[in-house]
């Protein structure tokens, strides 16, 4: 396989918990606790998990908006995790972002023209009339009209604002766009439009996406591969098809059983997870999921399962799967 576009190895981000007058550190929030994955050129990796599992933090850390605590981040083989802000600037052109909230992600006091043009001005890509032309092209590319450029963000709907955000991310011709729940704040009908737009742009420019979301249906549509995150760890990573048809991790199975099926007659087994997600300040020992796992046994609370490849291209971190290492395509979870 060729060199991956993005390579993340053992990425860790802890936030200190401070208390008292002297701001002593009394603990660490284990937001992201050693995750590894690759994204190939032109590929979309979906990163799913429930709120607070660290998926957005992972995205921001890769963008270097926050500094990682440990681990490696490589863009086309070059490490960027230890770069200073100044050194990072050269790599930012390859790495852009689309945020969740279409309202707070656009400066209310700038015209759309200036919002979309800002990255171009920053890198002196184009100036004057060329800049105007480039910005207009970008706006049209994402489905906005040229008249929209002289308006302010508050004159647009959520879906249109998200298009402005996408145009800004596209401006520098990045290789990878990190989409941090780009559609979860939008109406369902508008979600589809934005997802389709992202798909079209991927085909046209050969973009890669890291698509962070909590909605499996959305991720299923756009992703090639999917990584499932729970409490700061990736528990399973596989091709979309494999993950949806043959989930290997009990948590993935539970997540999939919660996806609504558009058929009122369909009867199926819902797996209801008991209890709450444990605190990321004091994550449980052993497998992080053992406190809620219906199949948990002794070993789960003592020993942390390693990520292993159970089927080609299908990685899972679960003790139940250890025995089956090898090509057992029909593996199902014990009842």
């Amino acid at each position: 396989m060729a060199q991956p576009l993005l390579c993340v190895r053992g990425l860790v981000k802890h936030f200190p918990v401070k208390k008292g007058l002297l701001q002593r550190t009394v603990g660490q929030v284990h937001a992201v606790d050693g995750i590894s994955f690759d994204i190939a050129e032109g590929e979309t990796l979906g990163l799913v998990g429930e709120s607070g599992c660290g998926k957005s933090t992972a995205g921001k850390t890769i963008l270097k908006l926050i500094d990682p605590t440990a681990g490696e981040i490589r863009i086309r083989g070059e490490r960027i995790d230890a770069l200073t802000r100044r050194e990072m600037r050269a790599y930012r052109r390859q790495l852009q972002v689309v945020f969740q909230d279409p309202y707070s992600s656009l400066n209310p006091r700038l015209k759309v023209r200036d919002i979309i043009g800002e990255p171009l001005v920053n890198y002196a890509v184009s100036t004057g009339r060329e800049l105007d032309q480039r910005v207009t092209e970008l706006a049209i590319k994402v489905g906005l009209s040229a008249e929209a450029l002289d308006r302010f963000p508050h004159e647009f709907s959520g879906g249109q604002r998200q298009r402005i955000g996408i145009a800004r991310a596209l401006a520098l011709h990045p290789s990878l766009i990190i989409c941090d729940e780009p559609v979860s704040a939008l109406d369902v009908s508008v979600q589809a439009q934005v997802i389709n737009l992202l798909g079209d742009l991927q085909r046209e420019f050969g973009l890669s996406y890291l698509f962070v979301a909590h909605d499996l249906a959305v991720v299923e549509h756009i992703s090639h591969r999917i990584a499932v995150m729970y409490l700061g760890k990736i528990v399973e990573i596989a091709d979309k098809q494999a993950l949806f048809t043959r989930p290997q991790h009990p948590y993935t199975e539970a997540l999939l059983s919660a996806v609504p099926v558009p058929d009122p007659e369909a009867s199926r087994k819902r797996i209801i997870l008991r209890g709450d997600v444990p605190s990321p300040v004091t994550p449980p020992p052993g497998c992080r999921f053992h406190t809620r796992c219906p199949y948990a046994f002794d070993r789960c609370s003592k020993e942390e399962p390693e990520m292993r490849e159970v089927v080609r291209g299908h990685h899972v971190a679960c003790h139940l799967r250890e025995a089956q290492t090898g090509a057992n395509e029909t593996a199902t979870l014990p009842a």
Binding site: K60, L63, L65, R85, R89, R92, R93, L95, Q96, V97, F99, Q100, D101, S104, S105, L106, N107, P108, R109, L110, E118, P119, N122, Y123, G165, R168, A169, A171, L172
Partner: peptide, 26 residues
Amino acid sequence: ELPFVEAALASGTGFFRILWRHILPN
């Protein structure tokens, strides 16, 4: 902490420019 400031940072806007264009007017 707002996303538009993070977006500016991600698109390579320098510190003083962020201050001038994004923080000050708001």
